[in-house]
Design a binder for these strands. Structure first.
Length: 490
RNA sequence: CGGGGCGUAGCACAGCCUGGUAGUGCGCACGGUUUGGGACCGUGAGGUCGCAAGUUCGAAUCUUGCCGCCCCGACCA
């Protein structure tokens, strides 16, 4: 195995691909555009799932599961939705194979053609709203707050591991409400959940905002999003929350009887985050030594590497360290004592760095004599000897410190790469160096498209937390009420 | 779908121009010495050279066709 990773500064996408492979997060599979998520990568995803799932439950949602297949007629019902997804759908047309009568192999049995094609879900609004029709009769059935963890398929032209794969894993929340206000509130609330998750768990600062009409989800009245900034200066959409209005309720005829005994269409929302977050996690924090994981999402938070020559020395080290391991575990810290004799310490150090383990402890005979242990931090790549007394408490606070340091670093990076731009010349120059550009926009799709055609920059969102400030569109000079966020994006 | 690159051992690649015994490094197996930042020595295993056809006494190498992968763009979470 060649040792160093490619440098981020030299070839960012190669660095990204290598880190995914070498840290054993995932690999490209034999199936074009689809990935194999390996155990270490999946362990991170499981931690994300757990944290998010807990947050969904806390906000009153329940999990359920809906079918993989969507009858074409369901998908067609909401027109915008249908045309939005039409060009990226996998279609099932037959239900049987047979052995090739002309020789070896299997062929599609033409006699087993489906009467109606089934679409492999690109998202589940259609199946779910079809089911909701049967679930909702009265205002007493509302709100209906459902989430599902599932895989979806979108036949993208070009794929990139974790960031855009043909099949990906995600969670999709689908809720139904009696009033518009309640649905809008739900849309906002879940965007807030995503932002909290991104910032507190992934240590990734995000901008909350609304998508422009061009970037809106097919079938939604309003699409909200969180946008993160990656180390190469490109933006990555990390989560979306849609206010669906009554679009799906009308298309699937989901009505309820209100307290006044009148029939009304329900109001809907849907929201999701996907395995793309794995890509965000990698690209936001990692360095040229490998992955850097925030402690809250690290499958292994602390690794302990014994350094010894003789078997007896290992036994002594093990005896000394065992109570520490036990105590760390009792505090809920995931710790690995790596006494594997097949690899040398130096190899292990490099390996755990590559895998982003936040804290590494090294302990050898010298430490046993001195009552010390070496503490190495992944985020700063620094190390120092500490007294082994009180080490557990020290590590507990250190993990918190690392979590917030990683966030602060990402936050600082974003601050340094966010620019207010007021002239078109400046815009064109700045977009080349990357980052978020805050600029005025006249609010028209035409301008948005022209800017995209000329610079490849898109409006990532109309931010919620930026102060409202009037000005003139950076492209047309027309009046504008507030700055929007431009960037080149993944 | 356009533009570029590449398919040779598990991985990374050389060999191809100029046809003639299939190689190197890493990894793997075994033995020994090692172990505080990716150890070293020795021995060994491992290949229908992407697939198919053609040219030739002879093809990894030349020709044609096909397949696959990666990167850059258009599309997108």
């Amino acid at each position: 195995m060649s040792k160093g990773l490619p440098k981020r500064s030299e070839n960012y996408s190669e660095w990204y691909n290598e880190i995914v492979k070498r840290a054993e997060l995932a690999e490209n599979s034999a199936v074009r555009g689809c990935m194999v998520i390996k155990p270490y990568g999946f362990a991170i995803w499981e931690k994300m799932q757990r944290a998010l799932d807990d947050m969904f439950k806390e906000t009153g949602h329940q999990n359920a599961y809906f079918p993989l297949f969507v009858p074409k007629s369901f998908l067609e019902k909401e027109e915008e939705h249908a045309s939005g997804f039409a060009k990226e759908c996998a279609v099932v047309t037959h239900y049987r194979l047979k052995t090739n009568p002309n020789g070896k192999g299997l062929i599609v049995d033409e006699n087993a053609k489906l009467e109606e094609e089934l679409i492999v879900r690109p998202t589940s609004e259609a199946v779910i709203w079809n089911a909701y029709k049967g679930w909702i009769q009265s205002w007493r059935d509302l709100p209906l707050l459902i989430n599902q963890w599932a895989n979806v398929v979108r036949w993208e032209m070009r794929t990139r591991i974790f960031l855009r794969t043909t099949e990906f894993l995600w969670q999709e929340g689908h809720t139904a409400h009696a009033t518009k206000d309640e649905a809008v509130e739900e849309t906002n609330k879940m965007l807030g959940v995503y932002a909290t998750f991104a910032e507190e768990w992934m240590a990734l600062p995000v901008i909350k905002g609304a998508k422009t009409e061009n970037e809106r989800f097919a079938g939604a009245e309003d699409t909200l999003c969180i946008e993160g900034l990656m180390q190469d200066g490109k933006a990555l959409q990390c989560g979306t929350s849609h206010f669906l209005g009554q679009n799906f309720a009308k298309s699937f005829d989901v009505q309820f009887v209100n307290k006044e005994n009148q029939l009304e269409y329900v109001w809907g929302t849907s929201w999701g985050v996907s395995t793309r977050l794995m890509g965000a996690l990698i690209m936001a924090h990692s360095d040229d030594q490998g992955l850097v994981l925030p402690p809250k999402l690290a499958p292994i938070q602390v690794v302990i590497v014994p350094i010894y020559r003789a078997e007896e020395d290992l036994a002594k080290i093990t005896k000394r360290i065992e109570p520490v391991v036990k105590e760390l575990k009792s505090k809920g810290i995931s710790v690995k004592y790596d006494d594997d004799d097949k690899y040398k310490p130096g190899y292990k150090f490099a390996e755990y760095e590559l895998r982003g383990v936040p804290v590494r402890l090294g302990i050898g005979m010298r430490d046993l004599e001195n009552g010390t242990i070496e503490v190495a931090r992944r985020d700063t790549l620094s190390k120092e000897p500490r007294s082994i007394e009180g080490i557990v408490e020290y590590i507990e606070t250190l993990l918190d410190k690392i979590q917030s340091n990683i966030y602060q670093k990402a936050f600082k990076f974003r601050e340094e790469n966010t620019f207010k731009v007021d002239t078109w010349e400046e815009f064109q120059t700045q977009i080349e160096t990357g980052g978020f550009i805050l600029a005025h926009w006249d609010g028209t799709s035409e301008t948005e498209e022209k800017i995209k055609a000329e610079t490849k920059a898109t409006i990532r969102c109309i931010p919620f937390d930026e102060e409202k400030e009037s000005g003139n569109c950076v492209y047309t000079g027309e009046p504008s009420k507030q700055r929007v966020v431009f960037a080149r994006a993944y």
